[in-house]
Computed example of a mutant assay.
Amino acid sequence: MNWNYLILIFLATLAGGIIPMTIRRVNANFTIYLLAFTGAFLFGITIMHLLPEVYHELGHTAGIYIALGFFLQVFLQQLSHGMEHGHTHLPGEHHHHIAVTPLLLGLSIHAFMEGIPLGFQYEDQSALPSLMLGVAAHKIPEALTLITVMMHAHKQKPELWRILLFFAVVTPVAALLAGWMGSRFNIVSHYLLYVVALVIGAFLHISTTIFYESGTKHHELSSRKVLAIGAGLLLAFLTLIFE
Rank of each mutant, 00 (worst) to 15 (best):
A168K: 08
H97T: 15
F70E: 09
N2K: 11
G106K: 02
A111C: 06
F70V: 12
A153M: 02
L118D: 02
F30K: 13
V170D: 00
S130H: 03
T239A: 09
A228C: 03
T38C: 15
I45S: 11
Q77L: 13
Q125T: 14
L238Q: 12
G69R: 01
H154M: 04
H152I: 10
H218Y: 15
I23W: 12
T101I: 14
E114N: 09
Q156E: 14
P52C: 03
L72V: 12
G59H: 10
R162A: 13
K157D: 10
A197Q: 01
F30M: 13
I47D: 07
A197L: 00
G115P: 05
H96F: 14
L233R: 10
L34G: 06
L6H: 01
V135N: 03
I19S: 09
T208E: 02
V170G: 01
I32A: 09
I200E: 05
Q121I: 12
W161A: 11
P172A: 02
V169C: 08
F167Y: 09
Q77S: 15
V173S: 09
F30E: 11
L14K: 07
Y194I: 07
K157S: 13
T216F: 08
L204F: 00
A236R: 01
L128T: 07
S207F: 05
I109N: 05
H205I: 08
A62H: 04
G232F: 06
H60I: 13
H60M: 15
G215V: 07
T148V: 06
P141N: 04
L204P: 02
L8D: 04
L234A: 10
G69T: 00
